[in-house]
């Protein structure tokens, strides 16, 4: 309906991602402001569990399309299902996450149905009945207010962690929709999240350099979801430097981040990179060790609630935007810190 707000949920290998809950929470809130209803669209496997989770964030309806086809093919089946739902119900807004999945689905949907699409949105509000979006620009130095022109469903792409998850309780009405059929000319997945060769649980396949990739251990939170992130840069001096970082992260139950310099040096995989060309994170605490604080790094972590920096150069740019800056040698401080955190946590 004209004032409804939907959230595009994302299910990877049967698991609902955390951004889905953030989007659902926001959809419920916006629908209230627009005087419409809220819904989430969940496509994949294990959608029943996903629907329960999404419902607890306040959405009234969950359109659930359950089928292996969504795990077997990239994006196209998802777009088939979503496009049919949009044409049928014509929601005012669909919130999606600017993840690889969200961007691919939303871009195709916008192209197919001629919809407006805004991405990298940090906040969305209703002003005089219209949507107003805040989009950070120039590495976060400026904040741009944007609006849609013309009618039709509006696609709003939110940055991970832009919106909090609000478990308001409740359960959604689940509307099962038939799964899409396999695309005639599709991008077929195999290996880790695909149908065939799903190997062992937790095995993500081979990285480009040939080594096996595994799901991170439970003690190591996924980067975008981590409440605390310990991040390392060129100041670590080599790959073994990350052992200190991992130890501290493990003691804190934190995720491990990295600067591009550390990633480019091959000390840690790209998935850990934080910044303009890596991940955008917004943890409660970001601890930067041996990271100078280049504007491109700041673009990915500058909106963390608290920033702690350890750097031996008192003039490092990171001291210009941290809450606690320690001018000192990380090799001396990090192991001590790890020890003290372990002691406190018993």
């Amino acid at each position: 309906m004209a004032n409804d707000v939907w959230a595009l949920a994302e299910i990877t290998g049967g698991k609902l991602t955390s951004i889905s809950l953030q989007l659902a929470s926001k959809a419920a809130e916006l629908a209230g402001q627009l005087g419409g209803s809220s819904a989430a669209v969940a496509m994949g496997t294990s959608t029943a569990a996903a629907a329960a989770d999404l419902g607890s964030c306040g959405v009234k309806t969950v359109y659930a399309a359950d089928g292996a086809v969504y795990d077997e093919y990239l994006i196209q089946p998802h777009v088939e299902t979503l496009a049919a739902l949009v044409e049928q119900h014509q929601p005012a807004v669909i919130l999606f996450g600017v993840t690889n999945y969200g961007r691919d689905v939303a871009a195709r949907l916008a192209a197919r149905l001629g919809l407006g699409l805004e991405y990298n949105v940090a906040e969305v509000t209703v002003e005089g009945g219209d949507l107003a979006m805040i989009v950070p620009a120039f590495g976060g130095a400026q904040s741009v207010k944007t609006a849609f022109t013309g009618g039709g469903t509006k696609l709003v792409g939110a940055r991970p962690n832009a919106f909090p998850t609000n478990r308001v309780g409740g359960s959604a009405e689940v509307v099962n929709v038939p799964a899409a059929s396999a695309p005639a000319n599709g991008a077929k997945l195999s290996g880790p999240f695909g149908a065939e060769g799903a190997a062992e649980a937790g095995h993500l396949g081979k990285a480009p350099d040939g080594h096996d990739m595994w799901l991170p251990a439970a003690t190591r939170a996924k980067l975008e979801e981590a409440q605390i992130i310990v991040s390392g840069g060129r100041g670590l001096g080599g790959p073994q430097g990350f052992e200190q970082i991992e130890a501290l992260a493990s003691a804190l139950g934190a995720g491990v981040g990295a600067s591009r310099a550390a990633v480019d040096a091959g000390w840690i995989p790209y998935a850990h990179q934080v910044g303009q060309t890596g991940k955008t994170v917004k943890p409660t605490v970001y601890i930067a060790c041996g990271i100078s604080g280049a504007v491109q790094h700041k673009a990915g972590m500058g909106s963390s609630a608290l920033i702690i920096a350890i750097n031996k150069d008192k003039d490092a740019p990171i001291f210009g935007f941290c809450d606690l800056g320690v001018v000192g040698d990380l090799n001396a401080i990090v192991p001590q810190l790890t020890e003290k955190v372990r002691q406190r946590k018993g």
Binding site: L115, G116, L117, E118, A132, P136, A137, G140, A141, Q142, S143, V144, K145, T146, A147, F148, T149, G150, G302, S303, I307, I310, K314, F319, F321, C322, D323, L324, G325, V326, V327, G328, D329, A332, I333, Q336, L337, E339, K340
Partner: peptide
Amino acid sequence: RERAMSASPVATQRKGEIYNGNEGAA
């Protein structure tokens, strides 16, 4: 289908406490 309306610089308030030296840093 989208239009930028206005832009404003972002100011963030950080505590900016500086601690000098390894001793007692942890």
